[in-house]
């Protein structure tokens, strides 16, 4: 248990580094999406620095676990973990969204090492994950495919097509994670387009559902372990999160969905993330 406490503490520390990188990147870029990056930072940190099997020096290693960022607009988070994980130098993060950079405004698998799929048009990542999971089953591979979806994103009909598919083909090597931060571009999800009852919906589609506090590192690790053990059906982790988590003036503020901090805001945010 001592060991686990240390793992959690280290991951929490790592998450703070990632959050700082995100703020700095977005400030440098002058545009981008703060809220959703910060709400899913703890989950993605746990994945990349504890749970996933991958080799930064061999990005195409066939046995690697795959992470598909279906909510592609939160790619600064992915770039931050990939750089921290050793896929490319951290100094390159400040080129985000700039001409000539390999760090596009939304994920481009052909430009950035470690990015598994080009996403950005919402609702498509889970289908890609299904294809990779199916290919893995055909080849008797033991990797798991993780897909991170936004809660607003699941209003896209294609998500439910993919949900049916994963269940129909018994893709127990898929784990969908929903960043349930309750806010989308135009406002709260329950006002823009109700997605509840979320648990019942996924259960009805044949998925194992695990609900957690998406900022509690212990719950995140437990959920990822349980998901991996599930047989014969896919798992969805519904992670209840706070949009803008970690920066007081961004938390639960819908206007921070698609906005970058100015110099003063970035400094204030960084001072809170020490």
């Amino acid at each position: 248990m001592v060991n686990r406490a240390k793992i959690i503490k280290d991951l929490q520390k790592k998450a703070r580094i990632i959050r700082r990188d995100i703020i700095q990147m977005l400030y440098e870029a002058g545009s981008g999406h703060c809220g959703g990056c910060l709400s899913s930072t703890d989950i993605v940190t746990a994945l990349y620095f504890h749970h996933l099997c991958y080799k930064p020096d061999n990005p195409d290693w066939p046995e690697r676990d795959r992470f598909i960022l279906s909510k592609g607009h939160c790619v600064p988070l992915l770039y931050a973990v990939l750089a921290e994980g050793g896929y490319f130098p951290k100094g390159e993060l400040k080129t985000l969204r700039k001409i000539g950079s390999h760090l596009q405004g939304h994920p481009d698998m052909r430009k950035t090492k470690g990015v598994e799929a080009s996403t950005g048009s919402l609702g498509q990542g889970l289908s890609i994950a299904c294809g990779i999971a199916l290919g893995g089953k055909m080849d008797k591979k033991s990797y798991t495919v993780y897909a991170l979806l936004g809660d607003g994103e699941i209003q896209e009909g294609q998500v439910w097509e993919a949900a049916m598919f994963a269940n129909h083909y018994h893709l127990d090597n898929i784990v969908a994670i929903i960043d349930r931060n309750r806010l989308q571009v135009d406002g709260p999800t329950n006002k823009i387009m109700t997605i509840e009852p979320l648990v019942d919906k996924w259960k009805a589609f044949g998925w194992k559902v695990i609900t957690i506090d998406g900022h509690d590192m212990s719950q995140i690790l437990d959920a990822l372990e349980k998901a991996k053990e599930t047989k014969d059906r896919p798992t969805v982790v519904i992670a209840n999160t706070i949009k803008g988590k970690g920066v007081s003036f961004m938390e639960n503020q819908v206007n921070w969905h698609g906005k970058a901090p100015n110099k003063e805001e970035a400094e204030k945010a960084l001072s809170e993330l020490t």
Binding site: Q124, S127, G131, G135, M138, D139, Q158, M164
Partner: peptide
Amino acid sequence: PGRFFNCGCAEQNMMGVAAGLSLTGKIP
């Protein structure tokens, strides 16, 4: 039969699944 996947009336998902399969070296 092991290499054929009916996606049902869901063309959008079918294209995404095809994309994913190609990423594992299949030719969908």
